[in-house]
């Protein structure tokens, strides 16, 4: 696929600890060996694979270190090809997964729709999905959990929702907007008699997808 998608493209490693000579006090790995210059082979390789090239003046000038690093060149070249290899098709796999998922649908509670004469119900998971979408229409708000419970003997329903919200505006303000949107959707899209919408903001919403600069895999997850 031609898409430049940060989720799917493996990047060359560019993170993690970069133990150089300073890490020499860490016990060596089993099978490690010291080069004639005194450096451990494992550390020289780590440095070469993890860090930007030529950051350590010793490695650049030391013939033993250079030779050790060059020893990995063939493996690295073959690895690059392996990395660029097209993985098997996601489309078919995703289709089969979703078929099983839909067959194992989790309905949740069955809630009464607002009709006093007929026996009409809607699955909690379906109603929750619609109400979450209503919450998501408020800029800077994204719904997390959404639970619905019947109240009393009639068709009244109470909604409890948690939100991730951007911090650029007062939270009560945003929660109010979400509540209004949820009430409206419950009446307009579903026909549920919602009596109350309890909202708790549980996390800060960061921009998504995260902006990544330079190499390295994107950071996943936007809330705490």
């Amino acid at each position: 696929m031609a898409l430049d998608d940060p989720h799917t493209r493996p990047e060359p490693p560019g993170d993690g600890p970069r133990p150089g000579p300073a890490a020499a006090d860490v016990p060596p790995f089993a099978g490690d060996e010291a080069l004639p210059c005194g450096r451990l082979l494992s550390r020289v390789w780590e440095q070469a694979q993890d860090a930007a090239p030529a950051t350590d003046p010793h490695t650049v000038s030391c013939p033993y270190c250079r030779e050790a690093v060059e020893g990995l060149a063939t493996v690295n070249a073959a690895t690059r090809v392996l990395r660029a290899e097209d993985p098997p098709g996601l489309h078919a796999v995703a289709g089969r997964v979703m078929e099983v998922v839909r067959a194992e649908v989790r309905l949740g509670l069955l809630l009464p729709l607002a009709d006093s004469d007929r026996d009409l119900r809607i699955a909690e998971s379906t109603a929750a999905k619609v109400l979450r979408q209503a919450a998501d229409t408020v800029p800077g708000a994204r719904a997390a959990t959404c639970r619905l419970v019947p109240e009393g003997d009639g068709s009244d329903v109470r909604v409890t929702m948690t939100l991730a919200a951007a911090l650029d505006r007062p939270l009560p303000d945003r929660a109010h907007q979400v509540r209004r949107s949820v009430f409206h959707s419950a009446g307009q899209d579903l026909g549920l008699a919602v009596t109350a919408v309890d909202i708790t903001v549980v996390g800060a919403l960061e921009p998504w997808p995260p902006l990544t600069v330079g190499p390295g895999l994107p950071t996943h997850g936007g809330t705490q």
Binding site: V105, L107, L110, R118, D119, L120, R121, A123, T126
Partner: peptide, 10 residues
Amino acid sequence: VTVTVTVTRI
């Protein structure tokens, strides 16, 4: 005849 309608999915 009584009927119950359940909406399982939209």
